[in-house]
Simulated scan of single mutants.
Amino acid sequence: MSKNILVIGSINKDLVINTPRFPKEGETILGNNFSTSNGGKGANQACAIGKLGGKVGMLGAIGNDNFGKDLSNALSSNNVNIDNLLIKDNISTGIAVITVTEDGANHIIVAQGANALITKDDIKEDVISSFDIIVMQLEIPLEIAKYAAATAKKLGKTVVLNPSPAVKLDREFLSCVDILIPNETEIDIIGGIDYVLECGVKNIILTLGADGCDFITKKERKHFNAYKVNVVDTTAAGDSFLGGVVRMIADDKTMEEAIEFATKVSNITVTRKGAIDSIPTYNEVIESY
């Protein structure tokens, strides 16, 4: 039976501008078009797991506004349980302003909004105890993410952390993490591969963009290649990859099997525009490879 997954993290409305290139400091340039989409790393990862057929719930905060309603509906429509969704009054839903260039690169600025108001009281043991795998990122307050990881670890849950946006993480936090999924920049900011392993993280999946990823433990380092695809938008590439990994480990697949599946997921995602909308379903992944 597939394990239950809880994503604790951010929920944002994405405001996206497509542009030929990134502007230089102090420069104004004309973009090509503007669109809105539903995102936030937490919501992206929850929807990825849901679209891939996982049993997943979301614990995160939205504002009591139209963006919040849109995001609540988006989560539900992508098979994510929203029983633990928090509505915070007198503050906006989180906003991400995203610039995407013609070659698919992106810059992202996030205004946390309701995401910043999640408290320790919102992280309830009886909720976490009803799930098997806890997935987190760092777009909610760091002390809340650390508290949630410690609570999950105390209850014997598998903890998966995507350390984005990256900050230096202490030994106490990292000792609660079973699977860490950073990119090359993030692993350096956290403290480096050796430091992370010394702190007790059992598995590192280091994502390398178009070069694939490395699976790292104290005993081995194994490389996995990405597929050659026509990149349109990389916005949700990492989130969909994580969703693929978690979806497979929920079915007790090996880490190697999970990474191979996740690589297929992310390689489809980058060929499409948007965040949640770009993530494939389980059947699309199976039928495409």
Rank of each mutant, 00 (worst) to 15 (best):
R221C: 09
H107Q: 15
S92M: 15
I205V: 11
A111I: 13
I144D: 00
I109G: 13
Y147S: 00
C213Q: 09
I193E: 14
R221T: 12
A105T: 10
F173G: 02
I128L: 13
T207C: 04
K153C: 01
N115S: 01
I144A: 00
F173Y: 13
A149E: 01
D170K: 07
S92V: 10
L85G: 09
R171E: 15
S92T: 13
I123H: 05
T99E: 15
A145S: 15
I140P: 10
K202S: 10
R221S: 14
L155W: 05
L155D: 01
G192W: 00
V201A: 00
V97T: 15
I128R: 07
C176S: 14
G192L: 08
G113D: 04
A96P: 09
S164C: 11
R221F: 05
G94R: 11
T185L: 11
I134L: 12
K168A: 10
Q112E: 15
K168I: 07
G191D: 04
D89T: 00
T99D: 12
A105N: 15
S92F: 13
C199S: 12
K219T: 13
P182T: 09
A111T: 14
C199E: 03
S164Q: 08
K218S: 13
I205D: 03
D121A: 11
P165N: 00
T119H: 06
L138D: 05
D194Y: 11
V135C: 12
V159S: 00
I193Y: 06
E184Y: 02
D194H: 10
I118T: 10
A150F: 12
D132F: 03
E184P: 04
L169D: 07
A210Y: 07
V127H: 05
L208F: 06
G200Y: 08
N203C: 06
